[in-house]
């Protein structure tokens, strides 16, 4: 294996269906519906997907959704705002866990 996370790997993604057809097809049908315009617009969903891709450190998804944002005419500044929202959520999630630390300290310290 030459490298992990090669760009060309993304082309293979739809082919995961080959090894588990029914589950794969159900996943892609769900994925398509969940990421298409509904009550939220395609733009809104694409920005959500980009933020999740960045927080989950998925290079394939970052590539796919940055390109989709560009295709939808979403500006670099709008993309960065979405990524900051994801980053803030991650920081918030981390800091919210400090409440557990504080609760234990309060319980244990004299």
């Amino acid at each position: 294996m030459a490298d992990y996370y090669e760009k060309k790997d993304l082309v293979d993604f739809p082919l995961i269906v080959e090894d588990a057809k029914e589950a794969g097809e159900k996943f892609f049908a769900y994925y398509s519906q969940a990421t298409s315009a509904g009550l939220l617009s395609e733009r809104e969903k694409t920005l959500i997907a980009l933020a999740v891709a960045a927080t989950q450190h998925c290079p394939y998804c970052i590539d796919a959704y940055t390109n989709k944002c560009l295709s939808l005419g979403i500006s670099r500044q709008e993309m960065m705002e979405a990524v900051h929202t994801g980053a803030a959520m991650q920081a918030g999630v981390t800091l919210a866990h400090a409440t557990q630390m504080r609760k234990i300290c309060t319980q244990k310290e004299m």
Binding site: S41, L70, L72
Partner: peptide
């Protein structure tokens, strides 16, 4: 007419028309 300002493909016409 919309054409991408760079090396990427355009998104769906209805989505871009709505944004324009």
């Amino acid at each position: 007419v919309h054409n991408p300002v760079g090396a990427y493909l355009p998104a769906s016409q209805p989505a871009l028309e709505s944004e324009y």
